[in-house]
Amino acid sequence: MARKSTTQSKIVWTVIAWVVALVIFFPILYAVITSFKTEPEAIDGFSLIPSGTFENYITVQTQRDYFKPFTNSVILSIGSTILALIFAIPAAWAMAFAPTRRTKDILMWMLSTKMMPAVAVLLPIYILFRNFGLLDTRIGLTIMLTLINLPIVVWMLYTYFREIPGEILEAARMDGANLWKEIVYVLTPMAVPGIASTLLLNIILAWNEAFWTIQLSTTNAAPLTAFIASFSSPQGLFWAKLSAASTMAIAPILILGWFSQKQLVRGLTFGAVK
């Protein structure tokens, strides 16, 4: 735009943007740095250069059995996502390719369940979980995460499927494909990118869900959210170790997140912004 001073203005904007970005990113960066400090170092004033110890990572595992909540997080997020996809793919397929007058209402209603404040049903769910022996079980939490994310999964898939032109499926039908072949040869290859994006976003959401996981688990099924939250009451000085645990808790999802920027917008706005 500013044609005369293109390079100059680009440098100015670059500096400003980098400063802003680093300020925003700083808390994460500082936690990662702290995780490589010793405990005394961690509380010894501001420093960006750690002594480079891996001790914290080892201690977190040996003293607090970090691996267990991590495994739980992996199982819960992937399990609930796959379960949600199994429910949602047929539903979204039907809504996208055989819409009726009620399809839109059903979609809106599904969205509305997402707006129910979780806390409003905290007690009934807690009591039901207690009575069915689901408290602090992976199965219970998986069901919970599946249900709370199901509307988003249906919606995301729906917006992706809707972009597949119905005429292509009709062409396949004219070409002699039965429903099964239509799904295998035509629909699935065209839907894979959308399904993959949905999978990715939903794993992120499930991994970071921090209300039900904290409410419904204590030790056995507790994922990283509940594990980390249990550090909130300080037992001695433990920041370097906490940083190590935090770094491990956010690293995998941070990386997934970087890959899913575009889908994130689309998924969380229910397709309203693309």
Binding site: F25, I28, A210, I214, A249
Partner: peptide
């Protein structure tokens, strides 16, 4: 990437 990162950090962390 730097700017969007905080969104992926779980609330307790």
């Amino acid at each position: 990437i730097l700017v969007i990162s905080p969104f992926f950090v779980m609330p307790p962390v």
